[in-house]
Design a protein around this nucleic acid. Structure first.
Lengths: 253, 253
DNA sequence: TCATTGCGATAGTATTACTATCAAATTAAA
DNA sequence: TTTAATTTGATAGTAATACTATCGCAATGA
C-alpha cells in the first residue's frame, strides 16, 4: 500500500496557486520506502545515506553496474568504503534497493496519472505511457533523480533477478514492489477484457518491452523499428498500445 | 550465411536408415562458427578449446555467470588459467561466443524446422516453438550441450548487451548472429502481413518474451500465468502464438 | 551528562582478473 | 624423420575488488 502525503515547500505552494492541472501540481509528494531488508539501515534517515543514494544513481549510470564499486562511490561522496558498507551489504543489494524504489515510484505515477480516468482502455494507454516515459520527478525528494534512475532501469534492471539468488531473494520479499506493480497492470488488463487468460504475463512483457525497445533503439537499432529522437517516445507508446489492444481485444466502451 | 553439411558417423547413419522424418534425421549436422573476433584463437580447432567450451557451459549453468571464473574453469578441465586466457580475453567474451553460437544454432533450427512449410502463419508458429524450446541437439558436436546452453541463454542471455561496451561491440559485429536471427523472424512476420510496421521490434520482443516467461515461470511465478511442468512448454507456445497473430493480424491463407 | 549510535580512518584478507615468462610437449613442415 | 613452429603447463606476480574488523571521535538523545 502506498501512502500519499502533501509536502510543504514554498516552491510547491507556488505551483499550487498557478495550476490545478495534475501535470503541474508538483506539491504531491510521496515517501517511498523499499523493503527494510534491502538495506542494513534506512539510508533516507541520514545525510550520508541520502548522499549514498543520490551518488550511486549518478555513478552507476556513468560507469555501468559492473565497473561501479563502493570504493569509487565512497571517494565520490567524500566518505569511506566501510561507511557505505554500513548501509548496504553489497552493490547488488543497493541495486535492488534502487529498483524497488523505482517500481514503487512507477506504481505511484500510474495511480496519479490514471486517477479519475473511467475508461479502462484509456487507463491502459496511460499505463503504457508511464512505463515508457516515467520521467516525472518527485519534488519532495531531491536525492533521487528519477530521469537518471530510469536510465539505470533500462540498462541494468534485468540484472536484479538474473542471479543465482533469485529464489531466496524472492522468498525474502525483495521483489514485492515489482509484483505489486505487475498486479496493478494485470488488473487493468482484466478490466479491458475479463476473459483474458494471461494478464500477468502480458504485464511483465510490457515492462520488459518498454525497457528493451528503448535500449535497442539506442544501441541495437536493427532489433527494433522504433526511433527515438529528441526524447519523443510517441512511436514506442503507440506501438505498445497497438500491441496490447490487439492482444487483449479491447472493446472501447 | 549458414552452410549445411552432412556429418558422417556410424550413429547418424543408423538414424538415416530408420527414418525419413526430419525430426529424426540426426545426421544433419552444422558447423557453427561464431565471429572470429569473439575468441583469440578458434576453440573448435583444438582439444583444449573444445574442453573449454564444453565445461564453461556446464560451469556457468552451475555457478551463474557472476561466480564463474577462468580459474575455476581451468581447475575443472585440469588446465591452467593462463591457458584459458589464450582462447578468450575474458569471461564476457566467452559468454558472447556462447550466445553467438546459440543464435546461429536457433537460426539453423528454424531453417530445418520450417523447411518445405508453405504457410507463413504455420512457419511463424514453428518459429515460436523453436524459440521457446530449442532443445534439439546437434549430433555432430558433442562438446556443446544445447539443452544446458539454452538454460544459460534464459538466465544470462541479456547480460550480453547490457554493458557499457555494447556500442563498441556492436560496431565490431559481435551481435551479427542475433541480428540475422532477428531479421529472419521479421521477414516471416512480414510474410504474414506485409503491411505490418514493426516486424523487427516484434521479433526481438518474441526472443525476450520466450526467455523471460520461462524464467518467470520458474523463479517469479507471480509475473506470469504460464506454468511449466514436466518440460511441457505448450502453454507458453500457445500464448505466444496467440499474441503474435493478434498483433500482426495474420490472415490464414 | 552519560550512553548510544554514527562516522571516519586505518588495516588486513581472500579472491578476481588479469599479464609475463619459460620450458616441455605436441604438431606441422621440410 | 628431423626440424621448426606452435601449444600447453607451471609458476610468479600485480592491481583491483569485495569485503571484515577495530578504534576513537563526534554528534545525538534520554
Amino acid at each position: 500500500m502506498i501512502t500519499y502525503s502533501i509536502i510543504k515547500s514554498s516552491k510547491c505552494l507556488v505551483f499550487f496557486r498557478f495550476s490545478c492541472n495534475f501535470a503541474h501540481i508538483m506539491a504531491i509528494g510521496i515517501k517511498i520506502t523499499p523493503p527494510e531488508n534491502l538495506s542494513l539501515r534506512d539510508p533516507q534517515a541520514s545525510k550520508l545515506g541520502c548522499r549514498i543514494i543520490k551518488n550511486s544513481i549518478i555513478l552507476i549510470d556513468e560507469l555501468g553496474f559492473e565497473a561501479f564499486t563502493f570504493k569509487k562511490l565512497a571517494k565520490e561522496i567524500g566518505s569511506t568504503e566501510a561507511s557505505v558498507y554500513r548501509y548496504f551489504e553489497n552493490k547488488h543489494q543497493l541495486l535492488l534497493y534502487l529498483l524497488a524504489w523505482y517500481w514503487q515510484w512507477v506504481n505511484f505515477l500510474i495511480d496519479i496519472n490514471t486517477m479519475n480516468v473511467e475508461c479502462a482502455k484509456r487507463r491502459m494507454d496511460i499505463i503504457v505511457e508511464t512505463l515508457v516515459d516515467a520521467k516525472r520527478e518527485n519534488p519532495s525528494i531531491d536525492y533521487v533523480n528519477e530521469t537518471i534512475l530510469h536510465r539505470i532501469i533500462i540498462a541494468e534492471g534485468s540484472k536484479a533477478y538474473h542471479t543465482k539468488m533469485v529464489d531466496q531473494e524472492n522468498t525474502a520479499g525483495l521483489f514485492q514492489n515489482l509484483k505489486d506493480l505487475n498486479q496493478k497492470v494485470a488488473d487493468t488488463i482484466l478490466e479491458c477484457n475479463p476473459e483474458f487468460s494471461f494478464p500477468n504475463a502480458l504485464a511483465s512483457t510490457l515492462f520488459e518491452m518498454a525497457n528493451n525497445q528503448l535500449f535497442f533503439a539506442e544501441h541495437l537499432p536493427k532489433l527494433t523499428n522504433i526511433c527515438i529522437k529528441d526524447g519523443d517516445y510517441r512511436e514506442l507508446k503507440e506501438m505498445m498500445s497497438m500491441f496490447v489492444h490487439s492482444i487483449i481485444g479491447t472493446k472501447v466502451v
